[in-house]
């Protein structure tokens, strides 16, 4: 999987939830969406990317990914 594609997808999700006036709710919206809909290897990659600095990831999404549950190896 290309991390560029995952970052694009994540930032799209970010755009929807960024409208939420309550920043905390926005972050939780992103986190929850990724947790519920992204397959573990996708989450594993994006978590690793954020841990490495998160280049290209929007600020709210960055925070949301940091809150994702750790994904066990398959």
């Amino acid at each position: 999987m290309h991390i560029e594609n995952l970052v694009t997808m994540l930032n799209q999700i970010n755009s929807f939830f960024a409208t939420e006036p309550d920043r905390e709710l926005g972050i939780e919206g992103i986190r929850n969406h990724v947790q519920r809909f992204w397959e573990p290897r996708m989450r594993r990659l994006i978590i690793a990317h954020v841990q490495a600095g998160g280049a290209g990831v929007e600020p709210l999404a960055l925070e949301a990914v940091k809150r994702l549950e750790a994904v066990k190896a398959a």
Partner: peptide
């Protein structure tokens, strides 16, 4: 308990060999 791959994700995962 984890969600699986969507179709476009399957294509991506096929490209990386997983």
């Amino acid at each position: 308990h984890e969600p699986g791959l969507r179709i476009p994700n399957m294509f991506e995962a096929a490209m990386d060999g997983s």
